[in-house]
Write a protein that binds this DNA or RNA. Structure first.
Length: 658
RNA sequence: GCCGGAGUAGCUCAGCUGGUUAGAGCGUCGGAAUCAUAAUCCGCAGGUCGGGGGUUCAAGUCCCUCCUCCGGUACCA
């Protein structure tokens, strides 16, 4: 019988931004907890992750910052790698898709499908720049929108009117790289026949009775719409080159190549370990359970696209489970980079004990639905739970030992194992949680160990017993110290740093942790303890500013780009068929113009007439629901309240705001 | 507009295929204790399970409808 193996992956973070708590809650912390638990159970498990480093977004960031893509990916790759490490998230390997081994692996994968004639070749007219010497990907083209006339529409979409475009539709297209006017040229690209795999996928997923319902629901949604073939190559520089002659200047699309990163990273891991063939045990052997930890935005890729790719390639195992999480909100608001709302890991670890961060996130994991995290939690959970329940038990036990028994493990002197058995029994409850990917429950049940322990301490009253029966007291404290050790093991998946600290306090730093040791007698009598330490000092104040650290700072020059003016509303009417749009005519000095504003849910058209408002006067023209808008009015918004910005005292329209 | 998801105690959330008095953690309150980071332990708190209607012997749990929020997708030439 072959032993079961676990191959655990966390979604490859895109190397175009810093990791924040939403990411951690979605894909990384649950995976790390799971892996640590499996390791305690002495299971064969490897934990794979790495940076996803290709794609247009990175290339565009590089273009914007006038640096090479390599600089961008290096910045985020190393920063994120460190962020994970700081949080105690320990991958066996944190690789990156820019590595040579990944390029090679992806190309082999591609060729495998190509040689089987599975890929569909489609020729399409594409824009080609003779100066840049390449085909221009959608987002590298700019031109006039054929629908609304907006002059800087992107190749894929017009930001002004929202129309989806293809670069060929643009009037006067220009290369965003060189400004060159591209010509139309035939370009052929390959498509992956996803449609063909739909039946097989549906069948496969229908058998996955232990998958979370949210994951299955998403899949069913996609099936219902019908899977469509997806382009697998595109005209770009930055990425894995298409390994065929005549396809120079084309790369493999990131969605295809990134998940292969799990395979390349596994290869890399075993090359480093000096056993270069061993990766196959994890990817090609049915005794291995492949588990992808991801956020819900990634479900389509891990539950549908990648499995289809693996089926097409054949020889690989398919995922056993995909315990995708929903999204983590912060103070009721969505975590989003663009809105400057969120907590970056690199910042939070400066502020708090990483185990506290793990604890707060783990107790709020969005396992069944989007969840909400409050900054206040860092304080209350630290003080009330970690310090009060867990830290306190360790501390009261150790301090008691120090004061009454010379800081040495007192002797056992009776045959009473009941409390240790209770502890053991509780761990079975915890195990069940882990096996079912219920990490929030696991955390709660783990804390119950400390609750049981505190109760035992209270009920046993060693501070009284010592006055009448010192032997009995020794036994009690011996139990408590052994419970401390058990707790150190049990909390290890959740609070690895604290676990180590407890071992140090117990002076058994080098002991090999194993789940089986929980509820057993592990400490040697009369051995002296180490130095005590307060595990979770009380937190008095919390730093609310953390949530805003994502906001970009600007200079006065940036501000001056805005041309803010006072305007007077002349007429105003509701835009038919819209929920929140009002169309208003405004007067800015001599200038009269029309703007469309999304405030109908807060103001009626009549209320606005004659009001003095503040508008951004140099806003690019745009069309909203087909209506031209030549500016943007300012309003303050919080929760669901919205009020217009107006002036303190009357002032003529046209006045500048600065 | 359409398709999903969600709306359960003050807060954060559990409640599988409908079935005894709707649960947990934290907070609040009362009590016990004082070894411990004013930490612990015990007890209590009574929430029309978003509104309304329906099916059923029985619904938080199924059906219809409405409201609110969140995703996805479409359209508004």
């Amino acid at each position: 019988m072959n032993k079961k193996r676990y191959l655990v992956t966390s979604a490859l973070p895109y190397a175009n931004g810093y990791i924040h708590l939403g990411h951690i809650a979605g894909a990384y912390l649950p995976a790390d907890i799971y892996v640590k638990y499996k390791r305690l159970k002495k299971e064969d498990v490897i934990f794979i992750c790495g940076s996803d480093e290709h794609g247009t977004a990175i290339e565009i960031s590089a273009l914007k910052e006038k640096v090479t893509p390599k600089e961008i990916i290096d910045r985020y790759h190393f920063a994120n790698e460190k962020a994970f490490r700081d949080l105690g998230i320990e991958f066996d390997i944190y690789s990156r898709t820019s590595n040579e081994i990944h390029h090679k692996t992806s190309q082999e994968f591609f060729l495998n499908l190509y040689n089987k004639k599975l890929l569909i070749k489609k020729s399409e007219k594409q824009l080609y720049s003779e100066i840049d010497k390449k085909f221009l990907a959608d987002r590298f083209v700019e031109g006039t929108c054929p629908i609304c006339g907006y002059e800087e529409a992107r190749g894929d979409q017009c930001e002004a009117c929202g129309s989806n475009l293809s670069p060929l539709e643009l009037i006067n297209p220009k290369s965003k790289i060189s400004g060159d006017t591209p010509i139309i040229k035939e370009s052929s690209n390959f498509y992956f026949p996803l449609e063909k795999f739909q039946t097989k996928l549906e069948e496969w997923i229908s058998k996955k009775t232990n998958w979370k319902s949210n994951v299955k629901n998403y899949c069913e949604g996609w099936f219902k719409t019908g899977l469509k073939d997806r382009a697998i190559t595109r005209d770009l520089d930055w990425g894995v080159k298409v390994p065929l002659e005549g396809y120079e200047g084309k790369v493999i699309y990131v969605w295809f190549e990134a998940p292969i990163g799990y395979i390349s990273a596994t290869k890399e891991l075993f090359i480093k370990k000096g056993d270069p063939e061993k990766w196959k045990e994890y990817w090609c052997d049915d005794n291995t359970k492949l588990i992808h930890f991801i956020g819900k935005d990634n479900i389509i890729f891990h539950a549908i696209v990648f499995p289809a790719m693996l089926m097409a390639h054949s020889g690989f195992i398919l995922p056993e489970n995909i315990p995708a999480n929903e999204f983590l909100n912060l103070e009721g608001g969505k975590l989003s980079k663009s809105k400057g709302h969120g907590i970056l890991v690199k910042d939070i670890v400066q502020e708090y004990n990483p185990d506290l961060v793990r604890y707060v996130v783990a107790s709020n994991l969005p396992e069944n639905k989007d969840s909400d995290l409050s900054i206040e939690d860092f304080k209350t959970k630290n003080n009330n739970e970690l310090a009060g329940i867990l830290g306190n038990f360790i501390n009261r036990t150790v301090v008691f030992t120090k004061n009454k028994f010379n800081n040495k493990v007192p002797e056992r002197n009776r045959n009473d194992l009941e409390i240790l058995e209770d502890i053991k029994k509780q761990t079975e409850v915890i195990e069940e949680c882990y096996e079912n990917f219920r990490f929030r429950d696991a955390l709660n049940e783990t804390m119950n160990l400390a609750r049981i322990a505190n109760k035992y301490f209270n009920d046993s009253e060693p501070w009284n017993v010592i006055k009448t029966d010192i032997e009995k007291c020794k036994h009690i404290i011996n139990n408590c110290l052994n419970i401390c050790y058990s707790i150190a093991i049990a909390i290890y998946p959740l609070l690895p740093f604290t676990s180590k600290k407890i071992l140090k306090i117990l002076n058994v730093e080098n002991s090999d942790l194993s789940w089986d040791k929980i509820g057993k007698i592990n400490l040697v009598e009369n051995v002296e303890l180490g130095t005590n330490e307060i595990l979770f000092p009380q937190i008095e104040n919390i730093n609310k500013s953390l949530e805003n650290k994502m906001e970009e700072e600007i200079t006065i020059t940036d501000f001056q780009k805005l041309n803010l003016k006072i305007a007077k509303v002349i007429t105003c009417e509701k835009v038919p068929n819209s929920k929140k749009l009002l169309k208003l005519k405004i007067k800015i000095g001599k200038d009269e113009r029309q703007i469309v504003a999304g405030i109908a849910e807060h103001y009626t058209a009549d209320e606005l007439i004659d009001k003095s408002i503040v508008v951004v006067a140099n806003m690019k023209k745009t069309k909203i629901m087909g209506i031209e808008s030549e500016g943007m009015l300012l309003a303050a918004k919080i929760n669901n309240k919205l009020v217009l910005i107006t002036t303190d005292k009357p002032i003529d329209d046209g006045a500048e705001v600065s």
